[in-house]
Design a binder for these strands. Sequence first.
DNA 1: TCGTAATCGAGACGGTACGTCGTGTCTTGCC
DNA 2: GGCAAGACACGACGTACCGTCTCGATTACGA
Lengths: 202, 202, 202, 202
Amino acid sequence: MCYNLLVIMKSKPKPNHGRRNQESRRALLEALKEMLIQHPLSSISIEVVAERAGVSKQTIYRWYHDKSALFIDLYETESVDRLMIPDMGSVEKELNELALQTWRFWRETACGQAFRQLVARCQSNLHASNQLRDDFMPRRRLFVTQILNRAVARGEIENGDCEVFTDLWVGFNWYHLLTNSLNDESIIPTMVSILLSGVMRK
Amino acid sequence: MCYNLLVIMKSKPKPNHGRRNQESRRALLEALKEMLIQHPLSSISIEVVAERAGVSKQTIYRWYHDKSALFIDLYETESVDRLMIPDMGSVEKELNELALQTWRFWRETACGQAFRQLVARCQSNLHASNQLRDDFMPRRRLFVTQILNRAVARGEIENGDCEVFTDLWVGFNWYHLLTNSLNDESIIPTMVSILLSGVMRK
Amino acid sequence: MCYNLLVIMKSKPKPNHGRRNQESRRALLEALKEMLIQHPLSSISIEVVAERAGVSKQTIYRWYHDKSALFIDLYETESVDRLMIPDMGSVEKELNELALQTWRFWRETACGQAFRQLVARCQSNLHASNQLRDDFMPRRRLFVTQILNRAVARGEIENGDCEVFTDLWVGFNWYHLLTNSLNDESIIPTMVSILLSGVMRK
Amino acid sequence: MCYNLLVIMKSKPKPNHGRRNQESRRALLEALKEMLIQHPLSSISIEVVAERAGVSKQTIYRWYHDKSALFIDLYETESVDRLMIPDMGSVEKELNELALQTWRFWRETACGQAFRQLVARCQSNLHASNQLRDDFMPRRRLFVTQILNRAVARGEIENGDCEVFTDLWVGFNWYHLLTNSLNDESIIPTMVSILLSGVMRK
DNA sequence: TCGTAATCGAGACGGTACGTCGTGTCTTGCC
DNA sequence: GGCAAGACACGACGTACCGTCTCGATTACGA
């Protein structure tokens, strides 16, 4: 049910028998993006998104279980490769870069504010909550584990405790996002160094 | 409009002629508390709370601006300081204990659910957000810094980076609360040990 | 659930605690009446009636199970006392008068066309069908049985077979309504005389 | 667009290159017939008929203008002339038999339900309405007039008022069909006797 | 023998309406 | 004045069918 961007993009361009209409998907995400600039996610109804995108409600429900899923599609589409950190030869450099990019992405696009709304919404919607935890977050956490895996390969850090490390990483960033404190980037290196101390090879 | 706990507590013990009915307030919070145990936040409507408490909707709206305000009243009423960890001679033990107590407090009382609602509300309310960051959280963070200060005094850890350490600490716990994953307590020691590595005296 | 006109009209004028808002009921029927002039019932949605009457959908559903019930309220309100035939001393005269009045009522107001739509609708809606048979028609049939009862009292006709007589009566009129043949009133006396032969006292 | 039975029946027995697939037409009517037995008309959607018949919606719309047209095709296909009553020597016996057969035909085949749909459709379609009154009904009424004619020949009844008699007859049956009350056959003799009283030779 | 043209299944789509739910406001009459 | 009761306008929900529209596979026919 959940739409997979990459698979679609790689499939041959010959379109449409009973397959998803890419045009309507694009219009949908575009409409949502524009609306997110002015309104919090919670005040944006599926009804209005559909109307604005020139798409029927049913089409939304066909591809997305709810508003959150729609936003997630947008979020992932927008953040693709912005948070893909290249090999910089050092886990410390890469983690610093990832945190910096994440904070900037959140500050500079509508996505930061929108993600806050998404988290908020999940606090009163069981399905959205499960989806966030089991579907969306694992994909986000990959950006971190990728870096960690490279570091393991380089022999920089021990292999293990990767999940808890990522919990701490994500928690730190969420906390700053959710309390509106993404401004002081100077604390990032400290955070990285505290975390790395716990996993560095002696 | 928003109900202020202290004012009520100072009012005479047998008041009531046109003043707020304490009985209905108590019934309201009680009903809410019971429901939070069994039902996800999402499925609790003001309508149902009112009915269960035997209170009219109007009475709720007279005293609370909206649903969140009701949850917050519950949270503040319930949250006694059961998170004060005594000196156990070791920062590691104390931090483990604090995390454990925090998770249990959130899991076993309605407060975890209520706090989630509080955080959610702050994502679309600037004033609430500032209050959370500048007023409420500093008090909560004291539970951690207190332990850290004792550890510094004992010579266990370096003095410094306390704020970032606490950010990581709080972030980790929030993350697990907000994603509904407070069940697996076995990861707590790992978390504590990673964090402490970054600040332990060599 | 089904609204009873007479009870309301007789109740004391002091209005409204949780009681039905008469103004919105009036607006509703008025809106429906106007729309029936231009559109068949089947093409009139509850949504639009509500909007036109300046009333919320919920309010309609509170008082009427479905569109048919709403129309029935209108129909009965409109036809009240138009089809109440006074004692004319002779069952034959009275039945002739009743048929004449019925045909004219159907021809001259929106109600005839609307009633056709109502019957049509009942052919594909079980609930509407039951309501028509068990709720609405018994009240309509009273206009006939009233006349028959008077005739029995006068000794004009036998007491019995009243139901079948009324079936025949109603069927005849329905048939002419549903086949768009309400024009030739000259057949009415023949119909009356055939029917009466079967029940007259010898 | 509207499918014409006769044209099909005259077409060569083994046609089909881009011609209509008889198998899917048969499956369609069969599915419809079966569903009419168990489900009220209201709950039968084109979508479900198509699925049950293993036929695509498009195929239905290619051959029928709308849902009613589909029902009508069924009615005309199914309605063989099983209502031809033989001479039984008595008009009363014959009329009783005719009513009984009619009711059973409507109850036991899908045709009763289909005919209800036909009548319903005529209430918002002038052309269909005229056709019903001027084309279809006269043929149906023949079953009655035939019996009446025989009775006149036998000298049982007066010659005259045949049309009004038939109006009453048909109206009575329609009324019971359209209100879903074809179950209590015990009222039929009463109906016959009332009607006959009005036309019997003294 | 191979187009070619229409039918067919599948099913996505834009629509319209549905009937329900929840919010927050309002009114009434009791206390 | 607070309060229970409950009607109300509003807005959104998620679902059900409608009738239209591609698409690619199938199937005869006629060149």
